[in-house]
């Protein structure tokens, strides 16, 4: 007992002495260093962190662009645990970050709390909505973009079976799942859709196994919305070779396997982050809820789609796109809506 408490005393003493020494010395000189004209933009990732092949990476891309094109000074804080969201946002607030981005719906509560503590600073939130005078929220109609991929898959399949691989069954993944199913059904109701979930977002080997099971059951095109598990889905298509396809998600994943990635569902988190960050610079920032759908070019198919998909199918996809933009098709975003969904005669 006394041995342990002696340790305690010694360690705590040493730490405090250093802390005080540094704390007393540091802060004053630093204030003047930051040139006043450079605006600060930053982001806090969710637990997925950078390299999630999903919204964190996309947001980072947008932030990078803001650094290069708009001269923002940028910072990224990766969250290790859920409990870190609030303090991570606060640490950005403490540094007078002009706009702090919170990436992912898991940060909703944290943004709600912290934004009110820093009324003079601005915050952005991806994939969820917080109504506060200094918060801009951006959500995406993933189902609309996924619908187009469903159309492509249904038109392109040679086997009459396509697949969907999800990460975990949560509402945002349901958007992809339901939209894709609806697209397939609209384009060709006879095409069968297999569905599988990995139960994780960060295990590519698992993603590959689920994809292989679907290929084995006759699917030849698989759309994934499973974060880094998708690397395995693409690997599976690559390994199966010609005639087997993966469809990427969030950003263009074509480069991972140029011969086997047919198309990707672009979710332009980068555009949302860049645009709203730019508004901070232009002083046109509005604390509203931005919805990015097909009409806003917030979701859609990637440029590489035309590498593998013939013109006439792209034309048809374009037709569906217009119908969605016009409101002729309301794409289902959940399983219940999907059940009620009847595709219009195209």
């Amino acid at each position: 007992m006394s041995k342990s408490s002696k340790w305690a005393v010694i360690i705590v003493a040493v730490v405090i002495i250093i802390a005080v020494a540094v704390g007393l010395r540091k802060p004053k000189e630093e204030i003047a260093e930051v040139p006043p004209e450079s605006l600060k933009a930053a982001m806090v990732t969710d637990v997925g962190g950078l390299g999630d092949e999903s919204f964190n990476d996309a947001a980072y891309k947008g932030l990078k662009e803001a650094e290069e094109k708009l001269g923002f000074e940028i910072t990224v804080v990766e969250s290790k645990k859920m409990d870190d969201y609030e303090p991570n946002l606060r640490s950005l607030g403490d540094q007078d970050t002009d706009i702090s981005w919170a990436i992912g719906f898991l940060l909703t509560d944290a943004v709600d709390t912290v934004a009110s503590e820093y009324p003079d600073l601005k915050f952005g939130l991806i994939d969820s909505v917080v109504e506060q005078p200094n918060v801009a929220s951006a959500t995406f109609k993933e189902e609309e973009g996924s619908f187009l991929l469903g159309v492509i898959a249904a038109k392109m399949t040679k086997t009459g079976t396509v697949g969907f691989v999800g990460g975990m069954e949560v509402p945002v993944i349901e958007h992809f799942d339901a939209g894709f199913h609806a697209g397939v059904r609209a384009a060709d109701p006879n095409v069968k859709v297999l569905r599988g979930y990995t139960g994780k977002f960060d295990d590519p080997a698992k993603g590959k196994e689920v994809a292989l099971a679907q290929f084995n059951q006759g699917a030849d095109i698989i759309f994934h919305a499973s974060g880094a598990c998708g690397l395995g889905v693409i690997e599976a298509a690559k390994e199966q070779g010609e005639g087997y396809w993966a469809m990427g998600v969030d950003s263009c994943q074509h480069h991972l396997a140029p011969d086997n990635v047919m198309s990707c569902m672009m979710k332009r988190v980068d555009v949302a982050v860049f645009d709203i960050t730019e508004r901070v610079k232009d002083e046109t920032f509005e604390p509203t809820h931005y919805v990015f759908g097909l009409a806003e070019n917030g979701v859609g198919t990637c440029d590489k789609t035309s590498d593998h998909v013939p013109e006439e199918i792209l034309d048809e996809v374009e037709k569906y796109r217009e119908m969605i933009v016009n409101g002729d098709i309301v794409v289902p975003a959940s399983y219940t809506e999907l059940e009620a969904f009847t595709p219009p005669a195209a």
């Binding site: 994780k200 960060d202 295990d203 590519p204 080997a205 698992k206 590959k208 690397l231 395995g232």
Partner: peptide
């Protein structure tokens, strides 16, 4: 077997 057999890249925490 994970990074060079089943997959062809390294992913953080890929051992899962």
């Amino acid at each position: 077997s994970l990074s060079l057999g089943f997959l062809s890249q390294f992913r953080e925490n890929m051992t899962g």
